[in-house]
Amino acid sequence: MRNRSAAAHHDAGAVFDALGEPVRREIIARLHGGPSPVGKLADQLTVGRPAVSKHLRVLEGAGLVRHESHGTRNLYALAPEGMVVAQQWLVGMWDVALAAFADAVDEAARQQRADDVPIEDPGEEDS
């Protein structure tokens, strides 16, 4: 399929904005089964064909779907490279979260070791 999206490079913000709407996520899920025309998608969703077309334009603008025209019929399909943007963002966030967690564990371990060191009471005398 040929990508007819105007934007060649997509950012994570556009991808997550597009995926923030439940109907759009449902469209993405439906397209996992392969390319589909707007009418078939509309038949499977709770919104009408005009709304599905608008959602598809948003998803296409974010680089998540692409379409190909066959006469008067437009087939929409997933654009896997669009999900790569989201995946890379999530991996980056996960790496930051894991590093922060590791730092917190190290600090807790250092604190525990400091708390375990016996402190001699200068007032006690050895007998």
Rank of each mutant, 00 (worst) to 15 (best):
Ser5Trp: 03
Ser5Met: 03
Ala6Tyr: 09
Ala6Pro: 14
Asp11Lys: 02
Ala12Trp: 14
Ala12Cys: 11
Ala14Thr: 06
Ala14Glu: 08
Ala14His: 07
Asp17His: 07
Gly20Thr: 03
Glu21Asn: 11
Pro22Gly: 06
Pro22Trp: 09
Arg24Pro: 05
Ile27Leu: 08
Ile27Glu: 02
Ile28Gly: 02
Ile28Thr: 05
Leu31Ala: 05
His32Pro: 01
Gly34Ser: 05
Gly34Glu: 05
Pro35Met: 11
Pro37Val: 12
Gly39Glu: 15
Lys40Thr: 15
Lys40Arg: 15
Ala42Arg: 11
Asp43Phe: 11
Asp43Gln: 15
Gln44Thr: 14
Val47Asn: 01
Val47Trp: 00
Arg49Ile: 07
Ala51Pro: 03
Ala51Phe: 02
Val52Arg: 09
Ser53Ile: 02
His55Ala: 06
His55Lys: 00
Arg57Ala: 14
Arg57Tyr: 12
Glu60Val: 04
Ala62His: 03
Ala62Lys: 01
Gly63Leu: 01
Leu64His: 01
Arg66Tyr: 00
His67Met: 11
Glu68Cys: 03
Ser69Glu: 13
Ser69Gly: 10
His70Trp: 07
Gly71Asp: 14
Gly71Ser: 08
Thr72Ala: 14
Arg73Pro: 01
Arg73Gln: 08
Tyr76Gln: 10
Leu78Gly: 01
Pro80Thr: 08
Glu81Phe: 10
Glu81Val: 13
Gly82Ile: 00
Val84Asp: 15
Val84Ile: 15
Val85Ser: 09
Ala86Ile: 06
Gln87Asp: 14
Gln87Arg: 15
Gln88Lys: 15
Leu90Asp: 06
Val91Phe: 01
Val91Ala: 03
Met93Trp: 07
Val96Gly: 01
Leu98Lys: 09
Phe101His: 05
Asp103Pro: 01
Val105Phe: 00
Asp106Thr: 14
Ala108Lys: 04
Ala108Thr: 07
Arg110Val: 04
Arg110Ala: 11
Arg110Gln: 08
Arg113Gln: 13
Val117Thr: 11
Ile119Met: 09
Asp121Glu: 13
Asp121His: 08
Asp121Val: 07
Pro122Asp: 06
Pro122His: 07
Gly123Val: 03
Asp126Tyr: 13
Asp126Gly: 13
Ser127Trp: 15
Ser127Lys: 13
Ser127His: 13
